[in-house]
Simulated scan of single mutants.
Amino acid sequence: MAGPLLLDDADDPRLAPYRAMRERDLVGRQGRFIVEGEVTLRLLFSRGARFRAESVLLAPERWPGLEPFLRGIDRDDALPVYLAGKDVMSAVTGFPIHRGVLAVGLRGGDPEPDALIPPAPAPALILGLVGLTNHDNVGGLFRNAAAFGADAVLLDSACCDPLYRKAIRVSAGAALTVPFARTGSGAALLDLAERHALTPFALTPGGGEALETLQPPARALLLLGTEGPGLPEVVMERARRVRIAMAPGFDSLNVATAGAIALHRLAGDRLART
């Protein structure tokens, strides 16, 4: 890569992809997304990563620590690295920048959901999200999926974007590394489970099976719905309903917490072998 370029004008056109980050995250940025912080920056360039970086923007004091890493990146073209003071970065993004590490990633095309599922009879653990619109919860669930070895996350059309800046940050970068794809609906997730011999589990406080007594199958689809309404009845009636045992008088967990507990249980022997 060439040396970094120092930019001291917030109106420099090379900084346009970083402009007004909060507002543009809500409406999209033409196939781009923003990565924030050193941990997620490194994951964006990790081996086998799905996404590609368009540019990197650093506060000057962050360059010495990241220079060896960025110079060691193997790619066919030169990666633009821009340096700008935090006052310039804050003026461009629209809010105070503290970490001094940003990058623009390119989304590329979305994979087909079927392509992300290991073929039978190999073990498979898929996380299916239905109607989750909270970026913290989606980011937390991607982090859980990575921690417990899920093969992929599949989201229905109502779920929020896992590449929203906050979702990436909450996921500790897992949204950049865990394979994911969109399906049209919860029913489409269940159709996919049938095609790929996945046992579907609907996590719900009213489940007839206790999670702690469940014998994890080799191939499973864990379905999670939004907090409050939960999964639609038309989805749950086609799945095995399981519950997490809780203290008497209380039956509510944050969906990301509940997902972590269920993924740990369903991961079964795959965790013991690591």
Rank of each mutant, 00 (worst) to 15 (best):
A239E: 00
I117A: 07
P119K: 07
V234M: 05
E38W: 02
R107C: 15
L203H: 07
L15R: 01
E212M: 00
V235Y: 09
D74Q: 14
T274N: 11
A193F: 05
H98V: 12
L83G: 00
F148D: 01
V35G: 03
L223E: 03
S252E: 05
P96M: 05
R62V: 01
R75F: 06
R219I: 14
L163V: 10
L223G: 01
G186D: 04
V39K: 15
Y18I: 04
R143E: 10
P162C: 13
D110C: 09
L223C: 12
E36K: 08
F201Y: 11
A218V: 10
G31K: 10
L263R: 02
G140F: 07
L266C: 03
F33R: 05
V104A: 07
P200F: 02
E194L: 11
L70F: 01
S46K: 12
H135W: 06
V235N: 10
D11G: 15
F180K: 10
P217K: 03
D251F: 08
T274S: 15
L79G: 06
G100Q: 02
A53I: 03
L198M: 13
L189N: 02
P119H: 04
T204A: 02
A120Y: 15
P113H: 00
L214N: 12
R241F: 07
F69D: 08
G259T: 01
D77Q: 08
S252W: 13
T204C: 00
T199N: 05
D77E: 12
A152E: 04
G207A: 11
R165Q: 11
G108N: 15
A174P: 03
G31F: 08
F95Y: 15
H196Y: 13
M236C: 15
D136S: 06
T177C: 10
A258E: 05
P80L: 04
T204E: 01
V92Y: 00
I126D: 01
P64H: 01
A124K: 00
R62M: 05
P68T: 10
A146M: 04
E227G: 10
T274F: 12
R270G: 07
G207F: 12
I73V: 15
R165D: 05
I73E: 13
P96A: 09
G28F: 01
D161F: 02
P248D: 11
N137Q: 12
G259H: 02
K86R: 15
L192C: 13
L132T: 05
A175G: 08
R29Q: 13
P111R: 03
S157G: 12
R71I: 06
T226F: 10
R99C: 08
P119L: 10
P121M: 08
L7D: 02
I117H: 05
R75W: 09
W63T: 00
G65C: 04
L127D: 01
L106W: 03
E209K: 11
G259I: 01
D156E: 04
V178F: 07
A120H: 14
D77S: 09
G140N: 11
L203M: 14
R182W: 14
